[in-house]
Amino acid sequence: MTDPERLLNGAGSDFERELLGSLANEQPSPSLSRRMRQGLVALGVLTSAKTGVAAAVAVVALLSVGVGSVWITQHRAVPPAPAALSAPARAVTAPPLPASAAPTLPTTVAVEPAPAVVAARPSAAPTPSAAGDLREQIAWLDRARAAVRRGDSRGALSELAQYRAKFPRGEFAQEVTVLKIEALVQDGQVAAASSLGKKFLASHPESPHVERIERLLGTAR
């Protein structure tokens, strides 16, 4: 049986390749990678030598993850591995690992994300109205960005305010906040920009927009 050519490698349209490219390029931020490592150091899976992380720091880091600490407790509470986990050596040494040999996790081990962020995954295809919403959101964002680029900070702030009013739980909250900070700086509202920026940085220290916001606030000082 021959596999089809992958959409990302040329079988897909330009739009499909753009979408797939963005999915394929996502990576954990360095700080998130560091936190994963620190957690594993604390668990004794990795050594701290590579990063010089003290065990105490790693413990604090792991506990600060919150969800991770819940899991550790759960993991240690699970009964000994069921017989199904003790797959014959022959099975686990055959490449690739057969599914039957891969660990079947006890239900008590499952990650339980914080309730505030847990919700059912959207399962329905985008309806015309949902797609229309997205298109409208993007158009709004593009107008705000264009306004910032031509120096029309008031116009940008107006667009962003309208976006917020129309889409209080919009898909592009992060972009809206960054653009608002940029527009405020441009408009000379340094205190407001600084306040919003600091709030954002405090709430989202791991955001990929941190550098951009710090640069904007640095410019504003």
């Binding site: 990576q27 499952a110 994300p113 990929p208």
Partner: peptide, 27 residues
């Protein structure tokens, strides 16, 4: 794969000024 099957699904919507993805786009 098995961990994902057992985990709750996440909401794919963000609050304004709310949750931020802790990720980077490579390069």
């Amino acid at each position: 794969l098995r961990l994902a099957r057992g985990a709750h699904r996440s909401a794919r919507r963000f609050d304004l000024d709310g949750s931020m993805d802790d990720h980077l786009i490579a390069g």
